[in-house]
């Protein structure tokens, strides 16, 4: 295939990946890696490298907007970044040694798990329970809503930290943002309001991906010719996604469609991994 054909196909595919990723909150990486490996027969290491770069672009772009609104809990993000960056470094180094077909199988499994997690109902809960560690680390905070500032507390700091370590490893190993897992850690385990969880997760994704991208870069996994259409496509897709999101509030069906697409891709990845084609 010629460079120009490949670039156009990847650009279009990445646009839709970015669009769906932003509408569902799962991120573009989930579609990019299967698109490149299964449809275009790109080596999985290059695919993961390109995906990581696009993850950094979308996360940084949207974090810039969220940070200004004051919803992001920067101290919480900073503290948990210890876990995610340490995990990401471990994941990126593991990726060098683990055979590629195992990476493909793991990717498929995490894909399905994340799709299921994204379908669950998001109930806004605010806890006032005081935890010693959260108090010491100044994690309790407040966030602005339509009815004024709402105070919240953070619980189970240790459990959340451990989950973030795991999310970091997966991010470094698979080239995804692991946003779904980060939200589970904060919203599910640490009982942080959903809005704060999602924006803080987004804030952390860029740093997490950067920690593993430095390893990938030096290993030659980040090919500029391949990453170029991926980054441009995903960023444009995510921009369109954020515009649509503002206009329509009923995004349940989009998430269902995405989950179906993701499950098909996941099964493909697992199958290709099992027969050793990846």
């Amino acid at each position: 295939m010629s460079v120009i054909e490949l670039t156009i196909i990847i650009l279009i595919g990445s646009y839709f990946a970015g669009l769906l990723g932003s509408l569902t909150g799962l991120g573009g990486g989930f579609v990019i890696v299967p698109l490149l490996t299964i449809a275009l027969h790109v080596d999985i290491h290059y695919a993961i490298g390109a995906s990581l770069v696009s993850v950094i672009a979308t996360s940084s772009g949207s974090a810039a907007a969220y940070v200004k609104e004051g919803i992001t809990n920067m101290r919480l993000g900073m503290f948990l970044e210890i876990a995610t960056t340490a995990g990401a470094m471990t994941g990126a180094i593991l990726a060098i040694y683990i055979p590629t077909h195992y990476i493909a199988i793991l990717f498929g499994c995490i894909l399905i798990a994340s799709a299921l997690l994204s379908l669950r109902n998001k109930a806004e809960h605010i806890t006032k329970e005081k935890s010693y560690l959260a108090e010491k680390l100044k994690l309790n905070n407040s966030y602005p809503t339509a009815d004024g500032s709402v105070e919240y507390s953070v619980t189970n700091v240790g459990g959340g930290f451990f989950m973030m370590l795991f999310a970091g490893v997966l991010s470094g190993l698979l080239g995804i943002g692991s946003g779904a897992l980060k939200v589970v850690a904060m919203d599910g385990i640490m009982k942080i309001p959903f809005k704060v969880s999602t924006t803080t997760s987004n804030f952390m994704i860029g740093v997490t991906a950067a920690a593993s991208a430095v390893v990938y870069l030096q290993r030659g996994y980040i090919d500029p010719g391949l990453s170029m259409p991926v980054v441009i496509g995903v960023v444009l897709g995510a921009l369109s996604g954020s515009k649509i999101l503002v206009q329509s509030t009923s995004s349940k069906w989009i998430r269902v469609v995405f989950s179906v697409v993701v499950s098909i891709l996941a099964i493909e990845m697992i199958y290709n991994g099992l027969v050793g084609k990846i």
Partner: peptide
């Protein structure tokens, strides 16, 4: 990336690549 991409496509657009 966009700027470099234009140069890259201009020069190598018709080369055959294999990333497999």
């Amino acid at each position: 990336v966009v700027f470099g991409g234009i140069f890259y496509l201009y020069r190598h657009g018709h080369s055959i690549v294999d990333h497999s």
